[in-house]
Amino acid sequence: MERTTSSPAIEGQSIARFAARPGQGGGEVVVARSALGTPIGTLWLYGAPRGLLAIVLPNESREDAEDGLRRRLTRSGTRVVTFVDDPGPLREAMAQLEEYFAGQRRKFVLALEPIGTPFQRRVWQAVAAIPFGETRTYAEMARAVGRPGAARAVVAANGANPLPLVIPCHRVIGSGGSLTGYGGGIALKARLLAWERGELSAW
């Protein structure tokens, strides 16, 4: 897929509208899921009424991801989790991801409901603020969340990010510019960064 210049790219950093109290609905939560074909492979998206819950990258196990999502929702107070194949609630997220891969979008404006600890959510908020085409080191992110010296904890929180691409954890790198672990694989991380720097004309 080639970059298109037919419409101006939406500039800037992502605007992540995080749910204030993720997963605190109690009772039953119906999670919509849908597949999205992209230049990097098939993504699986998951969403609840208050926002996008998870994105599963092509080389990740959908079954493991759903088991993990079910456990996180249960720990947060939900008694029953039901997955349904329904692209309707996910159409806006799918459209924005398609625009990203077409070179027409540089930020995501979506309601998000990532489930994690307060520290993880602080890290994810900070990661969502890294502008398109830029990177930050783990040490810089530790300072950004008020925990200088906690780079290892930031590494762990970054690795637990349930919304890759939308919360762009691929933009966090090691000291000296090293590309450390990424759920989608180091090759994909390098390709995403090259795409965002304008070094690729096509996927």
Results as ranks from 00 to 15, higher is better:
L52A: 05
T135D: 13
P89V: 06
V127T: 05
A54K: 14
L36S: 03
G26D: 10
A150M: 14
T137Y: 12
P58Y: 12
A160I: 10
V31Q: 02
T78K: 11
E99Q: 10
P39N: 03
R71F: 15
D85I: 09
W44I: 08
G41F: 07
F83K: 04
A95T: 07
A128N: 06
G27L: 12
E99D: 15
T74L: 07
L43Q: 00
P131W: 11
S34F: 11
R106L: 10
E140F: 07
P49C: 00
Q120I: 06
L90I: 08
Y138P: 05
A111T: 13
S76H: 12
N158E: 06
R71C: 03
E60D: 06
A48C: 02
R106H: 15
L110R: 06
A157N: 05
R21G: 03
G23N: 05
Q125S: 15
V29N: 03
R91Y: 12
G51E: 01
L97E: 00
Q120Y: 01
T42N: 00
Q104F: 12
L45A: 00
R72M: 07
V80Y: 13
A32R: 01
R136A: 08
G146A: 06
Q125H: 15
E134K: 10
R71I: 12
G37Q: 15
A151F: 15
T78D: 05
T38E: 09
R79A: 07
F83G: 08
D64W: 10
V84K: 11
G88S: 06
E92D: 14
V145A: 03
A126V: 10
F119K: 05
V31P: 02
A65N: 10
E28N: 04
N158Q: 13
S34D: 04
P131I: 05
A128H: 07
R50N: 13
L112S: 02
G23P: 04
V84S: 03
R33S: 11
M94G: 09
E99V: 07
G25R: 09
L110F: 02
L112Y: 08
A153D: 13
E113G: 08
R21E: 14
R136L: 09
R91T: 15
R33L: 12
G68N: 06
F119Y: 13
F119W: 10
A54R: 13
L112H: 11
G103P: 05
R121V: 08
L43K: 07
T74C: 05
A126G: 04
Y138L: 02
Q104I: 01
G103Y: 11
V84A: 07
V81C: 08
R71P: 08
R152A: 05
V127A: 00
G133H: 06
A93E: 02
S61Y: 09
Q24D: 10
T74Q: 09
R70G: 00
N59Y: 04
R152S: 15
A156Y: 04
L90Q: 01
S34R: 07
T137D: 06
M94T: 05
A151E: 12
L90Y: 13
V123M: 00
A139E: 15
G37A: 15
L69F: 12
P114L: 01
L53M: 09
M141E: 11
E28C: 08
G25H: 15
V84Q: 11
R79F: 07
P87Y: 03
F101W: 15
V84H: 10
V29R: 12
N161K: 02
Y138Q: 06
E134P: 04
A102Q: 15
R152T: 13
Q120G: 02
L73M: 07
L90E: 06
R147I: 03
